[in-house]
Amino acid sequence: MDENVPIHEEVTTFIENVHWKKKNLVLGMTYESPKQLKQMLSNYVVAKGYQLCYKKNDSRRLLVKCCSGQCKFRLWASWMSEEISFQIKSLIDEHNCARSFKMGSIVNYAWIGSHFTTQFLQTQTMSVRILKEEMKQKFGIDVSMGQCRRAKKYAMELIEGTLVEHYAKLWSYGEEIRRSNPGSTVKMDVNNMPDGKTYFSKFYICFEGLKQGWKGSCRRVINLDGCFLKGLCSGELICVVGRDANNHIFLIAWAVVCVENKENWK
């Protein structure tokens, strides 16, 4: 993942890559892996309303037919060693069955979770019952409560895993600030646990330009304030601000801490 891209943009990009509107199957289309083709098939069944079944399903071949047994629909795809891709070799895209509101194993919890990651990122209290209703209203399909529970767990693990990777890049972020903004102050504190794991504690930033700007053109007044961080990662954002010649707020420094207390302000 790109260090310069915020987490919410990366999650949104991931969701857009498997968006259900990308639903058309094309003969000869190639994919990076069988997993990518299965995502496409999930989009297809949700958009079209047909219940498909995997007749052959492994790392080198995929045979898909309509579960009703009355349709001519048939998709055959296999691995192409020379091109290093997974290709649709034959396709009969014809149906004469009615729309189904139960998609079976093709629309699984991972597909559901990937489409609702943004909602879970913004509202962690979203219940599985609400998720079930959202699936019915947004996509017109019925899913079980068990699928919704697994989907929520999958989405939360996806978000938490992304957060862990981003927190691990804070050291590099601090070094880049020091390199590109000489004179800037960047400090990070961590908690070392007995099991050997390291957890984020606090992070402080003060750019050299802001230091000099406050010293050279601002009133000799400093204000302190903080606000709670909402989301999976709790804590507080505390800021030191001044007032410039136009009586506007001038940011001097800020820090992300676990709690607002005298020690963290120091």
Rank of each mutant, 00 (worst) to 15 (best):
D2G: 04
N4Y: 02
P6N: 13
P6Q: 13
H8Y: 14
T12Q: 08
T12V: 02
T13H: 09
W20G: 11
K23Q: 07
L27E: 09
Q36P: 00
L41D: 06
N43H: 00
Y44V: 03
A47W: 01
L52S: 03
K55I: 14
C66V: 09
C67A: 04
K72L: 02
R74S: 15
M80S: 06
S85K: 07
K89C: 09
E94F: 00
S100R: 01
I106A: 04
Y109W: 07
S114C: 12
S114I: 14
S114V: 15
H115E: 13
F116I: 00
T117S: 14
Q119D: 13
T125E: 05
D142Y: 10
Q147R: 08
R149I: 09
R149S: 12
A151L: 05
I159L: 14
E160V: 14
V164G: 01
H166G: 03
H166T: 02
Y173G: 05
R179D: 11
S180F: 07
S184T: 12
V190E: 08
F200T: 11
G216M: 07
S217C: 08
R219C: 08
N223V: 05
N223R: 04
L224T: 10
S234F: 12
I238M: 06
C239Q: 03
D244I: 01
H248E: 10
I249K: 11
F250C: 06
L251G: 12
W265K: 03
